[in-house]
Nucleic acid binder design. Structure first.
Lengths: 189, 189
DNA sequence: ACGGTAACGGACGCCGGCGTCCGGTTGGCT
DNA sequence: AGCCAACCGGACGCCGGCGTCCGTTACCGT
């Protein structure tokens, strides 16, 4: 869909659109979703009107900008699902998602639905959640995961991970890793 | 200090000050620290100027408003410290702090130093942190806590707990309790 | 009861973000 | 080369929060 539109766009428009998305990704990741639209426009070296023409609302911009992170999410979950060892699949999924969220502040906020009326990819998120549920079920069945752990608990720790804030992204990632180890220990049978 | 000033204040001023603090506590707990000062003034049935006269900055207001929560923090930590059983002291401390933070959104934000330049009670927090460190040391010495757990890990889970958001306070508290159980399991030897 | 003064709060100007309009520019097609 | 339409972005008006000033109110001491 994006490529389809891009083909119909004039070359300068396409360039601008791409630079806007790049700037949005960078600034969202670093500072979260609360940044002014104009700041993104500035970084993309573009006027405000151009930004608003391409993305009428911040939600639309975020949806596009986070599409790749969303795919990364799928990749992580699917990779875990593909692993023969259910427990290793489960733990790698947790670790992977934790790190992804630790690296990108804005995506974390978007994923945990801090957004006014939920992003467009709410449905996509649902799909990921179902895969996580499957992964959880398998790990539990294999006797590696404590039997009283529910899907909600996994969502819960994901939310909790988003609470880990730190000055530098590096510190966040490091803290996130330690937290992952602790959580996995707590979930293990 | 507060009572000292209150004695010197005229009766209407004292009333207003108290109503402002009450309103601030309520609205901070429910909506966090991001609420406009004027909203607090409205709820306290007071003009903006009066609010600013009593508390020149939002930081000053928050410091006063959260004083009681801070005392509750101390109480929880000291209670844990007073317990004969180091492990039970440690776990009750974790559970107590988790619940306190789950009940009050604003205090959580303030405690995890989300505030611009840290609240005045940064020193107080330091004191609490030292008590937590002592509690951690004892639990580790008793062989109940895993030996590789550091103070930072306890701080880490406290931060993580602040990431748990929910529509209703009740939901937050419930989620927080489950999280506490999970964390304690992960920390146990 | 009455004067003096502490305290109140409505009203003001400032600032920064928002979303949009329109004159100018530039890409693409003949 | 030249035209047209798509596209750009500076500039505008709006809004909401901020912090302060000053005329008015009402508390307290005599």
């Amino acid at each position: 869909m994006t490529e389809g539109l891009s083909q119909l766009l004039r070359s300068d428009a396409r360039d601008n659109r791409e630079r806007i998305l790049e700037a949005a990704r960078a600034v969202f990741a670093a500072d979260g979703l609360a940044v002014p639209m104009r700041e993104i426009a500035r970084r993309a070296d573009v006027g405000p009107a151009t930004l608003y023409r391409h993305f009428p609302t911040k939600e639309a911009l975020a949806t596009e900008a986070f599409a790749d992170r969303m795919h990364a999410c799928y990749a992580i979950v699917d990779e875990g699902l593909a692993d023969r060892d259910p427990w290793r699949g489960f733990t790698s999924m947790v670790e992977g998602l934790f790190e992804l969220h630790a690296r990108d502040r804005g995506f974390t906020a978007a994923f945990t639905a801090e957004f006014p009326h939920a992003l467009d990819f709410a449905a996509d998120r649902e799909r990921a959640v179902q895969s996580i549920a499957e992964l959880t079920r398998r790990a539990k069945e294999a006797g590696c995961l404590r039997p009283d752990v529910e899907l909600d608990d996994v969502i819960l720790v994901l939310m909790a991970n988003s609470g880990i804030q730190g000055a530098s992204p590096a510190a966040r990632v490091a803290a996130s890793r330690r937290f992952a180890a602790l959580v996995i220990r707590g979930l293990q049978a």
